[in-house]
Nucleic acid binder design. Structure first.
Lengths: 240, 240
DNA sequence: ACCGCGAGTTGATCCAGATCAAAGTTTCCG
DNA sequence: CGGAAACTTTGATCTGGATCAACTCGCGGT
């Protein structure tokens, strides 16, 4: 589905992209004021409901976006339906692959999401002309590469219990940083999505979460709401 | 081990980096002639024996390098010894993470390797000053990101047989491109390394290779030397 | 040529996680 | 408020790949 045509719950008023600059630095923040103005005229603020696609695997999207709020999952699916989530993205990440027409993966809203959308042609041109923008995108690519490789270790060499702990740790880390040792957060993913991120089945994910709860590493209310009393304890489960 | 101190079998004469330019485009090829001259004065051609480290995980390397010949594996190891190969690199790939002091993974020569080595400080400065160089490194990062995510699908969702077929396909693709449907190549990895790349055990890798041989998808002479009579057949094993 | 050792294969058995099956919750919508 | 569908948990059983254990092959060194 093309996001420019997606019907968000509040698709009424486009908001100029200038607001990105105030809140985030990744894309809009690095533009010069003239360029920002150019982009602002062409960009739109969009809401995307949880579960709808922003970019489809194998499709040609004419838009890039910048995540303002919410969580986006990047997915690869095989012809027979097996699928693997390959990354989670949070504000203020950039979604899309500059200069490449066809996406090899899909980007889907895991939670309700707000994005800032802008036309591909325009941004491609701006990237070529703006070293700071290129540097910024290069930085994000390297960050994603590190995350991907860390996750490869998780997928290839960790046990089911360690995998689930790794996921909770990842989410907890990206939820607003907590000051205390206790961390509280909402899971942006269903059990099925967690399974697809960890290379497990739903049932195994559920059982391991139960195990973590019974062993006191986490507390749970309402399936999606998690409390980690002691983050160090969970980190210890992951490394060795 | 610091590569500048590594004792290659032919560590005698440093060779100016200009030769990189003739053969490859990734790093040296994008430099202006003045910059190339600067770099050339500081760079060294090195041979690294199979099995020795180019950059150690957690270490601080003061050098970057450019692969001229051979295969380099990027590894992550856990405190308890479990390990995962997260990428294979071939000529003319760039090895190292610009602007980052400490490496989160190790780079090790899988085969005998020839690299072109240059000081970190100098290259960092050149990247900042040369948009083409930045673009080039950005491109490689994106290429590696795609490869990493494709491999995540392999690690998370493919069976042992599909994993082994994926690996053979990957190697075959990077061996010099063949014109015929028949592909012949040498494995740059031992069974143990293949296992660490695929998240399997040595025994399972061995059994699956035997299975592929018995089913006629591949032929084998001398353990490391593989013949794929029909590449399409192997690609079919991987996708669905 | 022979020896010794690391690399690879093969077989037997085990077990972590998958699969199959059935409740129990939650959410959402009329 | 009720009822259905989607999501989650839990239980029973099965199995792909791990583990344990020989054995064989090929290579380098003397």
């Amino acid at each position: 589905m093309d996001v420019a045509r997606s019907k968000g719950s509040d698709a009424g008023t486009p908001v100029a992209c200038a607001s990105c600059q105030a809140r985030h630095g990744v894309v809009c923040g690095v533009l010069s004021s003239g360029q920002l103005k150019d982009l602002g005229r062409h960009s739109l603020r969009r809401k995307v409901d949880a579960g709808s696609e922003i970019v489809a695997q194998g499709s040609e999207s004419s838009f890039y976006s910048n995540i303002m709020r919410g969580v986006v999952k990047l997915c690869k699916v095989m012809p027979d339906g097996r699928q693997q989530i390959v990354d989670l993205q949070f504000a203020p990440d950039f979604v899309g692959r500059p200069f490449v027409r066809e996406s090899t993966l899909s980007a889907e809203a895991a939670t309700d999401v707000e994005i800032c959308v802008f036309p591909r042609d325009l941004l491609d041109r701006m990237i070529s002309e703006t070293p700071e923008l290129r540097r910024s995108l290069h930085d994000q690519a390297l960050k994603e590469l590190d995350a991907a490789r860390e996750w490869m270790l998780t997928l290839g060499r960790r046990t089911a219990e360690e995998k689930v702990a790794s996921l909770l740790h990842l989410i907890a880390t990206h939820a607003e940083p907590q000051t205390a040792t206790t961390t509280v957060f909402d899971l942006p993913l269903s059990r099925a999505e967690i399974a697809d991120f960890l290379g497990l089945t739903i049932e195994t994910v559920s059982r391991q979460i139960t195990r973590l709860r019974k062993s006191g590493v986490i507390r749970i209310e309402k399936f999606r709401h998690i409390i980690v009393p002691n983050m160090d304890e969970m980190e210890r489960m992951i490394s060795a």
